[in-house]
Amino acid sequence: MKTMLTAVAGAVVALGFASAPQAQELTGTLKKIRETGQITVAHRESSIPFSYLDDKQQPIGYSMDICAKVVDAVKAELKMPNLKVVYQPVTSSNRIPLLQNGTIDIECGSTTNSVERQKLVAFGPTYFRIQVTAAVKKSSGINTLAELNGKNISTTSGTTAVPLLKNYEKTRSIDVKEIYGKDHAESFLLLVEDRVSAFVMDDILLAGQIANARSPGDFKILTESLRGEPYGPMLRKDDPQFKALVDRTLSALYKSPEMERIYNKWYMSPIPPKGVNLNFPMTPQLKADFANPNDKGV
């Protein structure tokens, strides 16, 4: 076991990650977990399929399955098999403040690893990569983003899609009129009702809305993308010991066959609560991320 860990750690160093500190003195999050006897895992309430509440109000999801491996590794590292795991729901507005003030220790949701956010927090290795693109009705005949010129489109306020779209408009000198929904369901409703020609958002979230629509066959997701965005577990900044633990645990997981099983469980099979199948095969970009685990932001 020891040799295997060393081998993995060696591989991690070779990949450019900060190596685990050799000193046995615990610091940062690991020290806090040891002292308090508990680890607080933050989850989202409706980020399907990443992290959400099932019909029994238990947090489940793709990101939660991955973070469970981190929790197992913490238990092994600290030799605390009975470590108490506390689940804390967070929103897109409070996830960063709660991480910074120590309420939560790791966030497992659908948080984009951006350079802007890296000024405030750290990220573990990317576990998903979304493409920001548009959902349209098949009947509209629209196949590219450029064809949206002069049309009304919907998007959800406060998401990274908004500045991306504005930037795209400027560089391509096309003109679209944005209508903001306050959440994804409302933005999608505008598309269903033909009030807009397209809904611009992360592809996986579009797939989630379409899978739940009354007639999923009416919609399609464009293959063109405004930008790819990596999702990763969010950690406190300047906490090298915990970061190294997360990095080596997840890097090993991504390269194991276990990862494909977890992926298929959430993206290629029916999932709670409604038993909807997202039918979202692994993209080549994500395969590359798993072959070379990394925490590069955009």
Binding site: S92, I96, P97, L120, S157, G158, T159, T160
Partner: peptide, 9 residues
């Protein structure tokens, strides 16, 4: 206000 919060934290 919300937009500024979401985009700048």
């Amino acid at each position: 206000t919300r937009e500024m919060g979401e985009l700048t934290f």
